[in-house]
Structure formats: C-alpha cells, structure tokens
Nucleic acid binder design. Structure first.
Lengths: 342, 342
DNA sequence: CTGTTAGCGCCTTCAA
DNA sequence: TTGAAGGCGCTAACAG
C-alpha cells in the first residue's frame, strides 16, 4: 500500500459507485449535474452518498477541474472592524450559491499580501476578493495573469484593471472636513494611524479642503505608523493638543480613533461639541450610541461586500473578466460630537 | 488538449525539470528536502524555479501527500474582537514555520460549523484550530475521525478529547462578580447577548456567586439572543433598570456590552462608579482608556493563540494526536468603573 | 544522490 | 443516459 492513512480511510467516489454497481463518473454527475442522471438512479446514488458519508475531495476536484469552489477573501486586517461589515455582506450573498469562502490576512504587509494571494491561487480558487490594496508591481503582475475572476474593493479613484468597486475616500474625508468647518470650527486637525492607501486618500481629502479654506497647516496633522485603536486616538489627541493648543476640532481617520478622542476630551475636561468637534470615519456600531453620539462618515460596508460577491459570482459563472468599475455612495451622519450650525 | 486554461499556462515541476534536464522529483526534493540534493544541482534548480516563477500547486500536493501545509482556523465569529487577539497569537507562532493559515467563519451556527469543518478537511489540511465550540454530535463524530491534529481553544471545563486549552469561564466570571460584591455593590445584575457555550459558563459563574452571597434573583439577568454590541449594552441596561430600579452594578458578558452600559449611564446621569459599578469581560483595547476606565477580566488571548499554534505545529510534526489539556490564567483588572473597597 | 514507477480522487473527453 | 480511458501536478516507495 503506497499511502498509509491514520484512522479510517476516506470514502471515495469509487466506494460509493461500486457499492451501487455503477461507475464513479455517474456518481460524480449525480452530485454536480443531477439533471444528467435518471431520477431513479440519482435517488439511489444520493441516498448511498448520504449513508456512506461521502464528502468530495476538494484537492482532487481542484486538480481535475477548473476550480475548487472556494472564494478566497484577502484582507489587510481581519482585525479591523471596518472589514467585518464587508465580510458580512460577502457571506450573505455567497450563502445562496454553491461556493464557499475562506479568508486570509495580509497584515498590511505587501510581501504577505503577495504570498497569501499566491497561496489562494495555488489552490485553484473559484474567485478572489481583494479588500486590501495592491500597489506593489509583483502583486499587479500576479493579478494580471490569474486564471480566475478577481474583484477588488478599493478606493474607486485608484482602480487599475479588472472588476472593482468602492467609494472615493478623498471625497468622503473632504465631506467630513467641510462639515467641521461649516459647524464653525476653524483649527481643524486630523489624526491617523497606519498609512494604508485608503488612509492616504483620506489625508489628501483633508488637505484639499483645508487649503481651499485657507486654514491648512501641516502641524495640524498627527499620525503614527501603528494600528488604529482607541488607545492611539487618546495618545494622538494629547500630542496634537500639545503642539496646537488652540485646536478646536479633529477629523479622525477612523471611529476607533474618534472614540479615543472622545474619552480623552472627557478626561481633559474639554466639552464636546461646544468647545471641540469630533468627526470619525466608518460609522461603526458604537458611533450611534456613544454619549455624545459620534458624527462620522457612513460607508456602506455590507452593501460593498454583497455587491462584490454578486459581481464575483456572476464572473465565475460566465468566465468573464471584463473591466468593470462601480461607485458606491457614502453619507455623512451628523450626531452629537459636532455642534449644529448656528 | 484536454484542459483548456485562460491566460498563461501554469509553470509545473516538469517544466522546471525539463528545462534543466533533470527529473521532476529532483526539483520537488530540492524544494522540500534540500539536504537530499547536491548543493550544486540544488542551486541550479532553485535559480531556475525563481526564473520561471514556479509555484507549487497545493491541490496536487495535497492529493499526493499527507497534507497541503495549511492550518485551518475555524471561529464562530471573525467579527468578534475577542478572537482577533487569538488570531494574532496564532499567526505570530505560525509565521516562523512553513505552514500557512486560512480562516473560516461559522457565525455561531452549528450547521455552518459542521460544513466549514468538512470544507477544511476535504482540502487535506495540516491541522485545524477550533475556537468555536462543538457540542453537536455530528461535529464531535467528525472530529473523532479527522486525519490531522486538531487543537481546540475552549472553556477548559468542557473539554472532551484531543488537544485543548483555555480558561474556565465560570471561574473568571465568578471572580468578576465577587469583585463587584466586594466593592460594596449589592444588587448586581448581569447582561448578555448571544448564548454561546462560553457565555453560558459565564452565566453559571454569576449565578454561583450570587447564590453564595444570598442575593441571587433571576430578575437581575437580562439577555437577548443577538450579537453582543455596544448598542445592545445600552438597550439591555435600560431594560434591566426598568425592571430593577435599585440595580447598583452590572456584570457584562463582554466589554462591548460594558461600553454601552457606560454610555447609557452617562446619558441617564448615573454616576460611575459612585452609584453604579460596571465590570466587563475580555479586556479589549478600549477598556484601558475609556473614561472612567473599565474594570474587566483580562483573558490572555494572544498567548492562547500562540500556544494553540505551538501545540498544533508540534502535533503536525510528530503525527501525534494524544489528549492534552492546558489551563491558562485570567486576571481581574480593576479600573475606574468599580469603586475601591471602602 | 538521482531516477522510475505508480497512483492520490476526481473530472473531461469521447464513445456507446 | 451511462461508461471507459486518460490525465491534472505532485510525491511515496523503491531502485540504481
């Protein structure tokens, strides 16, 4: 015996077939293309499959056919609450298909991203969803030659090729900063953690609006190359206030940072929104129920994921890989952390 | 040509081998067991592999050998911040091995859990980490016959077979509730969302301590079968206060709920910790920097993940599947949301 | 140290 | 509607 296995042998297609006195290809067909097998035989087969607990071997299937039926989802950080909404949308759409999802995490590391993408590809996936953002040439090259459809959820202004959808992060952050100015705040700062391409775009939007308003000053921006977190929000605000004591509002690249700012203001006795305005980004769960509520930019994460899956499933079905770009809307949600216009 | 591919043909082992005039098994060995190939040949091979951009086909490898080199991590909710720390620990340990990680999500649905587990298994994984908790017989059966090592991160008192590690959630929540009582709070309630086995254990710990103290009253517990969230924390507190107006403290099954309670207290003008004590669970990022800080139970999530990966990698290496149970410590972290003992 | 042979489990193609 | 033959890319076992 060339291959030894621990425990029970796996049940194969052939096992089911010989138990029934048919050929294995017929069992295979009964499972994948039931309409091509007579209904009586099909019923016998399906019953036998059930009885014997047969489960298809995806490795073998992947090797023999075009793909293994799995959608690989690659994110820069499974750890970011913002991706969770996207994942929920993807899963919701995929649930009613016969595909399955598996995730991998690139930790905002482009080398890791490259390798994880290779890892997926080497398993013959049905399709790929990228929520990270490739900029490295290696990754772009890899993508140009992939044998399966790829959908990217990205900043819509940075799109290169293939199927992609997203919002304009520059526009979204510009809207947020404009709102702060319209509220009457004037020394409006910005804080941000790890520099992803997405956050760079938000930064650009901030600069654009502040320059328009004649109030841009690099000193108003405080960043640190670490993961966004509530704690980081506290810290960045302290640092920024030290440098800019007359700061009266801050745009936070994400809601976690904004929550930290909210806490820090409370600790320092700064009144929000009377003396200080806070605007976040993403509209996470807690933004609606913090006290005061958090003004933030709502990004349709669930819809993004759902739509991405929709496009991917369609492309898997018809083998299509045409270019396609889709814009999604965002929305500023005003809550208690910014005062109403006088 | 039996199989048609879109785009470029994949580079195979044979392509590399014939370019070099050697046999494919030699290339295979140069890659997997370099010490078994002469160093000169090895260098030529590795260079050629690099030049041609050869990437092993995992499906084929999985089919021909014992496993595909991937560790499957199955969680009930990729969306829960508590799992993120665990994931970070797993990834940290796995990084220095030649294995890779892929995730799947069971959404706290045991049917889904079963299918996702099957999905992993049908790809010949190197090993599995389960952070969900199987109780269904089907899942237990499936686990008893798996051909690869499985490590479970679970409530340590619920362990069945195999390799597992975790904390006692009953003990941990008992410690939290005892702390609230020792602070002088007496009408101590509990709120909880979705009933996982883990949260059931926490509930048991709560009941145990309250009964010991002679203060147990089912009316003090408010639950709802939905995902834990900040918003849910707000809502459950409101409901509980309506039923128990003299409530003076609450143990929250997780920190998100506790954060909601904190906000709701602020909204209602209830002073924390003077008039009302709050204790959370997990010690998430924000617990340390909220205002007031959040008293909570610190669970060593990173260490749990790291250690789980360690045990798994060891088991993969020596084919071991012996039973093994490991306890991890937890720790109550007292912060501003509970007052000091008078 | 290197090669030959055979087969993993399934699916594609072609034939009946 | 069903089956036979062959191969996907790789690696285990055994030779040389």
């Amino acid at each position: 015996m060339p291959h030894r296995r621990i425990g029970m042998q796996r049940v194969t297609l052939l096992d089911v077939a010989s138990a029934l006195g048919v050929s294995s290809i017929t069992v295979s067909r009964a499972l994948r293309e039931p309409e091509k097998v007579s209904s009586t035989l099909r019923d016998r087969i399906l019953r036998q499959v059930e009885d014997m607990g047969y489960v298809p071997d995806l490795a073998a299937r992947a090797l023999a056919s075009r793909h293994n039926g799995i959608i690989g989802v690659l994110t820069p950080a499974l750890t970011d609450l913002a991706f969770i909404g996207i994942m929920a949308g993807i899963e919701e759409r995929v649930r009613s298909s016969d595909l399955r999802i598996q995730y991998a995490n690139s930790h905002y590391d482009s080398d890791m991203e490259f390798r994880q993408l290779q890892l997926f590809l080497s398993q013959h996936p049905a399709g790929i969803v990228l929520t990270s953002l490739q900029k490295e040439q290696r990754v772009v090259d890899l993508l140009s030659g992939v044998p399966c459809p790829v959908v990217q959820i990205v900043d819509i202004e940075l799109v290169t090729v293939g199927i992609s959808l997203g919002i304009s992060h520059r526009e979204a952050s510009a809207t947020a900063v404009r709102h702060l100015l319209e509220c009457g705040y004037s020394r409006v700062g910005m804080i941000a953690g790890r520099r992803s391409l997405r956050s760079q775009r938000r930064h650009e939007g901030y600069i654009m609006v502040m320059q328009e308003a004649g109030g841009y000053d690099p000193a108003l921006v405080e960043t640190e190359a670490s993961v966004n977190s509530v704690e980081l929000g506290c810290r960045l605000l302290r640092q920024l206030l030290q440098r800019v004591p007359d700061l009266d509002a801050v745009f936070c690249e994400n809601d976690d940072l904004a929550l930290g700012v909210l806490f820090e203001c409370r600790r320092l006795g700064i009144r929000v929104p009377e003396d200080f305005g806070i605007c976040g980004f993403n509209d996470l769960d807690f933004a609606a129920c913090s006290e005061p509520g958090l003004t933030t930019v709502h990004v349709p994460r669930f819809e993004l994921g759902y739509r991405a899956a929709e496009l991917l499933i369609r492309a898997v079905a018809n083998g299509g890989k045409r270019n396609h770009v889709e814009h999604m809307p965002f929305e500023l949600i005003q809550r208690g952390s910014t005062r109403r216009v006088q």
